[in-house]
Amino acid sequence: MKAVVYKGPNDVSVEDVPDAKIERPTDVLVRITATNICGSDLHMYEGRTDFEVGRTFGHENMGEVIEIGNGVDAVKIGDRVVLPFNISCGFCKNCERGFTNYCMTTQPDPVGAGAAYGFAGMGPYPGGQAQMLRVPYGDSNCLRLGDDAVEKQNDYVMLSDIFPTGYHATEMAGVIPGDTVVIYGAGPVGLMAALSATIKGASKVWVVDRRPDRLALAEQIG
């Protein structure tokens, strides 16, 4: 399969790599149909992390299930799924408390917690900027989508990371209907936070930035 391979700081290329495959009974194999580039991918691309040469980026992924392990119950071949950034088992003590970003099962480092696709320091898992992706613990990590998944995949792929990140900011800020909200920075996270604030019923949302193109996008979402 083809994948985006990290060659070193400011150097990536699309190369042929071994096909992703089922490795454990709880795995799901997904043919990637959409994936985003995250701002944190740039940290690795620019050499500001310990991301290893030869690895593949991509933690904002969605696609079609093409194979499942014999231990997978809920996910079926042909399902369209979006995959959360964090890889979680669903059954360790952190996952059971809702802290799936600190899963203790999927991080091989005994002093760490939390894993992700194609991300520095978060396990050995390849990223999804590739034709196929192995999804560990598929029943826990695949969010199955409805019949409009193909038509709206550019919207649904936002559920992998960027939209929940912005939404979580409004959760932490305790936004309630009628609030006035000020968001500093109209990058992707800021725009998703602005959208989330409007969804939560904020009466007025201010977005502060110095880039006209970003402010124009903020205006488009109201």
Rank of each mutant, 00 (worst) to 15 (best):
L217K: 10
S203Q: 11
I199M: 09
L191P: 01
T165K: 04
V81Y: 01
G187N: 06
R97C: 11
I176C: 03
G90K: 12
A202C: 10
P136Y: 08
E171C: 02
L42K: 05
T56W: 03
I176E: 09
I68T: 15
D161I: 04
S196Y: 01
I66F: 00
Q220E: 15
Y102S: 12
D41W: 10
I87C: 14
P108G: 05
R214T: 08
P110R: 02
M158V: 04
R211S: 06
G127T: 07
I176M: 07
I77V: 15
P9W: 00
V82R: 07
V12F: 03
G201A: 06
F119V: 10
D16R: 12
A169W: 03
V28N: 05
K2S: 12
V205D: 00
P164D: 11
L159T: 00
D109I: 09
Y137E: 08
A173T: 05
A216K: 13
P110T: 01
V157W: 09
P84W: 09
G174A: 11
A115T: 11
Y184H: 08
C142S: 03
G121A: 15
E64F: 00
V4W: 11
Q131D: 15
C92Q: 08
Y137Q: 04
T170F: 12
A74P: 03
T170K: 04
V175R: 06
N154W: 03
V181I: 06
L217E: 11
T33R: 10
G187T: 06
L42I: 09
S140A: 15
R210K: 11
Q131M: 13
D179V: 11
P18V: 14
P18G: 13
A216H: 10
V182Q: 01
K21E: 00
I162S: 02
A197L: 08
P9Y: 01
R134L: 02
V81S: 01
P18E: 15
E64Y: 04
T100Y: 15
T100Q: 11
L143A: 03
T106Y: 00
V182H: 00
A202L: 09
T180S: 13
G71T: 09
D109S: 08
P84H: 06
R214F: 12
Y167K: 05
D109T: 07
D27F: 03
F99M: 14
Y6N: 02
Q153Y: 07
H59E: 03
P164E: 12
G112P: 00
V28Q: 06
M62Q: 05
F91M: 09
D147V: 06
Y156A: 04
E67T: 00
D50V: 13
N141L: 08
G178M: 10
A116M: 15
P188M: 00
R144A: 04
Y6Q: 09
G123A: 08
T106C: 13
A186I: 02
P188G: 10
A34K: 11
A186R: 01
A149R: 02
